[in-house]
Measured scan of single mutants.
Amino acid sequence: NCLEGLIFVITGVLESIERDEAKSLIERYGGKVTGNVSKKTNYLVMGRDSGQSKSDKAAALGTKIIDEDGLLNLI
């Protein structure tokens, strides 16, 4: 459970895995996936064609922004 207690938001199109697979992977390792960035969000996983508003909010809140490889490296 290397992601225990961590909260993730996924945005954009992921290249190597589907969004549902990424969500399942995060949950399997103890993390939680939500739909919107908040002060409780630990990581924003940004894929291709992701919206600017979520990354702006993450930056404003100090949320770590990672890509798909960054997510896989956490596991």
Rank of each mutant, 00 (worst) to 15 (best):
V37F: 06
F8V: 01
K23M: 10
F8D: 04
G5Q: 02
T41V: 12
N1F: 02
G12A: 00
R48S: 08
L25S: 02
L44T: 03
N42D: 10
I65T: 09
K64Y: 02
I75K: 01
E4F: 02
V13Y: 09
L25C: 04
D69S: 12
K57E: 12
R19T: 12
V37W: 06
E27N: 06
I65H: 01
K40P: 00
A58H: 07
I26G: 04
A59C: 09
E15V: 08
D49A: 10
T41Q: 00
R19E: 09
D49I: 06
K64A: 08
L44N: 03
A60T: 09
L61I: 06
N36V: 12
R19D: 06
D56A: 13
I17L: 15
N1T: 06
T34N: 14
L3P: 00
L71R: 01
S50W: 12
R19P: 11
E27Y: 04
S53M: 11
D20Y: 08
A59E: 11
E27V: 07
S16G: 12
V9P: 02
D67W: 01
G35V: 13
E21G: 06
K57V: 13
M46Q: 12
I17F: 15
L74N: 00
S16C: 08
E21S: 11
K64D: 06
A59K: 11
C2L: 08
C2E: 03
C2D: 09
Q52I: 15
S55W: 13
T41H: 00
N36P: 01
T63W: 00
L14F: 12
N1R: 09
A59L: 13
G62K: 06
K57T: 13
E27L: 07
D20F: 06
R28L: 08
N1Q: 08
D69R: 13
E27F: 01
N73F: 04
E27D: 03
G51E: 15
A22F: 05
R19G: 12
T11E: 14
T11N: 10
T34M: 12
L6H: 04
L14R: 04
V13A: 13
D49N: 13
V13I: 14
G70R: 04
A59D: 11
I17E: 06
G35H: 14
I10V: 13
C2R: 10
M46R: 12
G62R: 05
D69K: 12
S55T: 15
L72C: 06
E15P: 15
L14N: 06
D67R: 06
G62C: 05
L14S: 04
D56K: 15
K57P: 07
E21A: 11
S55N: 10
G5V: 01
K57M: 13
S16D: 07
A60W: 05
T11K: 08
D67P: 02
A22L: 15
K40L: 09
I17Y: 15
L3N: 05
E27G: 03
K23H: 07
G35M: 10
Q52L: 10
K40A: 12
F8A: 00
L3D: 04
V13H: 15
I10F: 12
L72P: 02
V37H: 03
Q52H: 10
G12N: 06
E18M: 04
G35S: 14
T41S: 05
L6I: 08
L71Q: 01
D49F: 09
D56M: 10
L72H: 05
K40T: 12
L74V: 03
N36R: 11
S24E: 13
G12P: 06
L25T: 05
L61M: 12
L3G: 00
N73K: 15
S50N: 09
I17S: 07
K64C: 07
E27C: 05
T41N: 00
T63V: 15
T11V: 08
L3M: 05
N36E: 14
D69Q: 15
I7G: 07
Q52W: 10
L61H: 08
N36M: 11
T41D: 02
E21R: 11
I66F: 04
E15S: 13
I17R: 10
L6E: 05
T34Y: 14
L61N: 07
G31W: 01
N73L: 05
E68K: 11
L44D: 01
R19I: 12
K64L: 05
A58P: 05
V13Q: 15
L3H: 00
G5N: 09
K64E: 09
E27K: 09
T41M: 05
S53K: 14
G12M: 04
L25E: 01
A58D: 07
S55A: 15
T63Y: 10
S50M: 08
L6G: 01
E21L: 06
Y29A: 08
S50P: 15
K23W: 03
L25D: 03
Y29E: 05
G51F: 11
G31M: 00
E21N: 08
L6M: 13
S16H: 15
V13M: 13
S38E: 08
T11A: 11
L14W: 05
E21M: 06
I75C: 07
G70D: 09
N1W: 03
L3Q: 03
R28G: 09
D56W: 08
L44V: 10
S24R: 13
V9Q: 03
D67E: 05
L71I: 03
T11H: 09
A22H: 00
V45R: 01
T63A: 10
D49Q: 12
I26Y: 00
D20E: 13
G70N: 06
E4P: 00
S50D: 09
I65V: 11
L25A: 04
A60D: 10
K57I: 14
K57N: 08
G35T: 15
F8L: 01
M46F: 05
L14D: 04
A60K: 12
N42K: 03
A60Y: 08
T41E: 00
D20W: 08
G31C: 01
E18G: 15
G31P: 00
S50V: 09
E18C: 11
L25Y: 02
